[in-house]
Simulated assay, not measured.
Amino acid sequence: MQESTELLVTPKLFEQIVKAEGNLVGIETPNVDETIAQFRQLAIRSGQSVYLWDPENGIAALRESEMRVPGSKRFPDALRFILQSVQFGVYLLRDFEPHVRPPNTALLQRIARIRTDNERKLVFLAQKLALPQAIDALVERMNRAGDTATRPRLRDGRWVTA
């Protein structure tokens, strides 16, 4: 039996990530490895373009983990690849905390501003999300049920709850 505090990665949650207003999404989960495993199952079953970035492997497709993006181990290189990509994709980020600092924050802000049909979503996965204020204001947080958190945030100079 699964604890109620566990995150369940469902097609509904994936759809909410894709339909999120911004391109940066934050999800707190007590077990990041289990959440990634659930995203992997979703990617395999649905055929969705879901990728994982971590400092040891760089960007890798979750459906085929041996399929990696060369030269994407460094966080700024991974962000530049995502910025230049013309393909739709959901990119899960783990162990990102030490890398979310200038000049990488400027790249994250550029990704947050992308408005095209082939959206790229970055999903910060952590037990406890702690992001610099400039980035935190751009991150749409989702709770364990996949709903948008209602914590007020400053966006474009005004407070919003969605």
Rank of each mutant, 00 (worst) to 15 (best):
T116P: 00
P102T: 12
L83Y: 10
R80M: 09
Q87S: 12
L154Q: 11
P98N: 05
G58R: 10
L93T: 11
D95H: 10
T150K: 08
R80E: 11
R115C: 04
R110K: 14
V100P: 00
F81V: 10
M67D: 09
R155T: 10
V69L: 02
P76V: 14
L131F: 05
M67S: 10
L107S: 08
D117G: 14
R113V: 14
D77N: 13
R115T: 15
H99D: 06
M67C: 02
S72V: 10
A112G: 07
D77M: 04
F96Q: 01
L154T: 13
Q127T: 15
T105D: 04
I59W: 08
L93G: 07
Q84T: 13
F75L: 03
K121E: 04
A60D: 00
P98C: 02
R113M: 09
L79R: 08
G71F: 10
L107I: 12
M142K: 07
R151T: 15
R101K: 13
V139I: 09
D147M: 07
K128A: 11
L107T: 14
P76A: 08
T105Y: 01
D147Y: 13
R68N: 02
P132Q: 09
M142N: 03
F88I: 04
R113S: 15
H99P: 00
L108T: 13
L83K: 11
L93F: 07
T148G: 03
D77A: 12
R120K: 15
L122K: 07
D95W: 06
F75N: 02
Q87E: 14
P132Y: 05
L92S: 05
D117N: 13
F75E: 01
D77Q: 12
I111Q: 02
A106S: 09
I135T: 08
R63D: 03
L125Q: 07
N57K: 13
D95E: 11
L93V: 13
L125G: 07
A145Y: 15
R94H: 06
T148W: 06
E119V: 15
E119L: 11
I135H: 05
R94Q: 12
E140P: 00
R120D: 07
H99V: 01
L138P: 06
L93R: 07
T116M: 02
E140T: 14
R144S: 07
Q133V: 15
S72G: 02
A126E: 12
A130H: 11
L154M: 13
N143A: 06
P103K: 03
L92K: 03
